[in-house]
Amino acid sequence: MRRLWIGLTYAVFLILLIAPLSKIITSAFSGGLAGLGRALGRPEAMHALMMTGAIVVIVTLLNTLFGIMMALYLVRATWLGGKIKSLLNSIVDLPYAVSPVIGGLMIVLLLGPDSIIGGFLEGTGFRVVYAFPGMIIATLFVTFPLMVREVMPVLQEIGNDQEQAASTLGAYSWLTFRKVTWPMIRWAVVYGMVLTIARSLGEFGAVLVVSGNIMNRTQTATTLVYQDVENFNVAAASGVALVLAVFSAGLLLIMEWIKKRKEVH
């Protein structure tokens, strides 16, 4: 009985995860190392990877900062009523439920050339949609809940006793945060950052809609994979996909490592 269940579990992993993963590796190397080099050496591939990198850095920084603050407010703020807090709390989750394509569409509708704001910005020579800022906004939207949802439970769990204790000992807010709160939420923040990196690295739908997928201008790694597949250039697509997969696997390892660290605490 036990053997059967373990065997079945292995089968599920093998078919659903391991086989596809190994397939992409063999496919990426189908043209040998040189083929992989060619696929990645293309100017559009280099540019796409640079774009992805830039998006990851900017989005992770912004959402880490705002995510921590939002979590603090949602858990601790006394100036927000209970009802408002729980309303905001449920809104935080909405991007999870929004299809990335719809996320992209929202930004196009709101800030696109045909919209009021977009038209105004266009007049000042600042393009949002089909340009870099739009892609940032789209990725910010999609990744917003990740940090908040990692930090909030930790804040709730530790309660504010220790912070109050610190304030009775004469510590002011910033010192309290740095010396008391931060050490306790540190690993949750790092974990949230890793999640945000993984998600912004892999974001596809929202970025595809917002960017217009213009080669060498607004193309990211994932949308390049899509374009390569559409052009039946599967080997090149696999090369870029492999780079993404390796990054994701690395992030996964870091996630596991952090989970262990968190348990130690």
Partner: peptide
């Protein structure tokens, strides 16, 4: 962790 487009490509391959 994996980009969904990569997931799709895997299945395609």
């Amino acid at each position: 962790a994996l980009p969904t487009a990569v997931g799709g490509l895997m299945i395609l391959l």
